[in-house]
Amino acid sequence: MGIFFAKKKQPSRVTEQDKAILQVKQTRDKIKQYQKKIEQSLEKERLLAKELLKNGREDRALLLLRKKKYQEQVLTRADGQLENLERMVHDLEFAQVEMKVVDGLKTGNTALKQLHALLSIDEIEKVMDETREGIEKQREIDEILTSTFAVEEEIDESEIEAELDALTEADINEKAPEIPKDVLLPDVPKELPEEEKSRTKEKIQEPIAVMA
């Protein structure tokens, strides 16, 4: 197979297989031509038989029809052979495609082998071990850093929360009396619902501010 493809690069790119395909195709063409010939003579004989019948020569017409029948049989046989030849051509062409596939796989395989030759297992193991060590070290560092921070945060949070609670309460107390003053101008019935809304808004906003 290697020889087959190496040959293609040289002046003559026609292979033995190509010649075989050509020969088969040529035979197919000959059968096709033969069929054309028979078809034409069939048509002629049919007309001739009609003519003979008109002239009352039934015996000759019968003879012609018998000949016609025989030729039709030949035609169907030729059709079968034609099919065989066509299949042969397809098989040959497909075999060539398969060869190309195998060749492609071979090239890929050698390329892969060359790449593998560059990488030794020991080296990879060493690299992997070192990487693993590095990752572990990193994890240790991370653990140390996160643990110290966590302790501080816990303490901070409880204190901060308490402080914030105090602040928010003071805030609400401060703001509550102020709101009626601002909203006094509009109509009286709208007073109560607006007060509630503004309070809930403040409550939602405050925790966000803390988190940040």
Binding site: S12, R13, V14, D18, K19, L22, Q23, K25, Q26
Partner: peptide, 15 residues
């Protein structure tokens, strides 16, 4: 293309 011609067979292969 290349013309193939041997014995009485004649054909062409396209590239």
């Amino acid at each position: 293309a290349e013309i193939i011609s041997f014995d009485d067979n004649q054909g062409v292969k396209f590239f």
